Simulated scan of single mutants.
Amino acid sequence: MKTLLLILITLASVTVYAQPEQIVLLRHAEKMKGKDPELTPQGQLRAQRLAILLAPLNPDRLFSTDYNRTRQTLAPLSKATSVPVQLYDPRALADFATQLKTYSGTIVVAGHSNTTPELVKLLSGEAVSIREDEFHKVFIVSWQDGKAVLEEQDSNE
């Protein structure tokens, strides 16, 4: 009985302290104009390049806002990894950040020039920015000794 109790306590504590290996956050690729625009040809190429760059990370979850440009940015990665894209509400980023921290593995999140920096800040405590004409920045939040570590990469390289 004591052994069973010890196993249950150990499993419960693992669940409580579970957190992602890394969360990759990026802005959608280049978009056309208009309401809920799709990706431009350049944006479609960037989405393909992102799939090539991120597929080796073996993402466990993909998240996108419910807009054409963000869903289309993750579509090639979803196809390459057979991981479905789940939707999140960009108006509830604090709740979403809390939710993300409960998952394990690698997570990729596509957002916008205003929501991605806010989500990076909620997850890492560090401020970043994305200009309206920037589509190349990729932010990776990981944890070392329980502390968030932020790394910025360039999808153009």
Rank of each mutant, 00 (worst) to 15 (best):
K2T: 11
L4H: 01
L6C: 00
L8A: 14
A12P: 00
S13E: 04
V14D: 00
T15H: 06
T15N: 01
T15F: 05
V16P: 01
P20L: 00
E21H: 03
Q22I: 01
R27M: 06
H28E: 04
G34N: 11
D36S: 10
P41Y: 00
R49I: 11
R49V: 12
A51D: 09
L53I: 13
L53S: 12
L53Y: 08
A55Y: 12
D60E: 09
R61K: 15
F63S: 02
T70D: 06
T70L: 06
R71L: 15
R71P: 02
T73M: 02
P76D: 12
S78G: 15
S82V: 13
V85I: 15
Q86L: 15
L93F: 07
L93W: 05
A94T: 14
D95L: 14
D95A: 15
L100H: 08
G105I: 05
G105N: 07
G105P: 02
I107N: 01
V108C: 04
H112Y: 08
S113A: 15
T116F: 04
L119Y: 05
L122P: 01
L123A: 05
G125S: 11
G125K: 12
V128R: 05
I130N: 04
I130V: 12
D133W: 08
E134T: 14
K137L: 07
V138R: 04
F139N: 00
I140Y: 00
S142H: 03
W143Y: 15
D145M: 01
G146C: 08
A148I: 01
E151K: 13
E152C: 01
S155I: 03
N156K: 14
